[in-house]
């Protein structure tokens, strides 16, 4: 089933035309990687999918984006509901300066869930899903900032899972982490794919090749090539894609 569908999307920051005629469809329960040189618009496109760019004054968008068939920029859409459904994990782990428990419970509380048992259960379940439960189950009331970077990032994933999204957007989620933490995050993404649709931006070609089902190559604001990961990395149909993945530029 089509989960995300972008139709002829153009994005501008003021006069700067940063995304050009993007057409792309993402299926349910898949991992899609966005690759491309710095400044090509990967983050911008990712952030149009949960309307995170709404806060930038100069941001303008043309074209349409549908999630589960609904136009997410429609006036009737509540952006808070959209973001609940489309979660986001950022490049640098950004836990709140609260306890581990409070970090995961935060999303539930802001959405009006106050039943203690329900909150406890969801916190535990989310931490288990994020493969962090065993490491933190005895210190849930400790500050989140006392965790290691890799643990903090998994906490951020748990926090996102707690509000029960169906899509998770990840913007270079492992780029600030050591190789072991990175491997854990990658493994986690593989498991989460069963239940969620994942879109991940990465600068790491091997990572894209390892974890994604489909890969989109962006270059200077254009979607140059979008195909099955196995095809795009072994037999790209575009010269620019080939140059990029073989490291001849970017």
């Amino acid at each position: 089933m089509k989960h995300i569908e972008a139709k002829n999307v153009n994005v501008y920051y003021g006069e700067n035309h940063v995304l050009k005629d993007i057409d792309l469809t993402i299926k349910e329960n898949t991992v899609t990687a966005f690759i491309g040189p710095s400044g090509c618009g990967k983050s911008t496109f990712l952030r149009t999918l949960n309307r995170m760019n709404d806060y930038i004054d100069t941001f303008r968008k043309k074209g349409k984006i549908f999630i589960e068939g609904k136009d997410i920029y429609d006036k009737k859409v509540r952006v808070e509901e959209l973001r609940r459904k489309v979660g986001m994990v950022f490049q640098k782990p950004n836990p709140f300066p609260k306890s581990i428990f409070e970090n995961v419970a935060y999303g539930l509380k802001i959405h009006g869930i106050s039943n203690k048992m329900e909150i406890n259960e969801t916190v535990e379940k989310s931490l288990k899903q994020a493969a962090l439960w065993n490491e933190v189950k005895d210190k849930l009331d400790k500050p989140a900032l006392s965790l290691s970077g890799g643990q903090q990032q998994r906490l951020c994933i748990a926090r996102t899972l707690a509000v029960k999204p169906s899509i998770i957007l990840m913007d270079e989620p492992a780029s600030a982490l050591d190789p072991i933490s990175t491997a854990k995050i990658e493994e986690l993404i593989q498991e989460l794919k069963e239940k969620y649709t994942i879109v991940i931006v990465t600068h790491n070609m091997q990572q894209a090749a390892r974890i994604s089902d489909r890969t989109a190559f962006f270059y200077m604001g254009e979607l140059v090539e979008y195909d099955k990961t196995s095809v795009l990395f072994t037999n790209p149909s575009n010269k620019q894609t080939e140059n990029y993945i073989t490291g001849r530029f970017g």
Binding site: E81, R83, F90, N94, P97, K109, I110, T160
Partner: peptide
Amino acid sequence: VPKSLREASYGMGATKFQTSFKVVVPA
């Protein structure tokens, strides 16, 4: 207070009011 904390809160569907008083003020 780092912008990344506000983004994390908005990213989970918090309103501006919730973000201001439940994340930024405590931080």
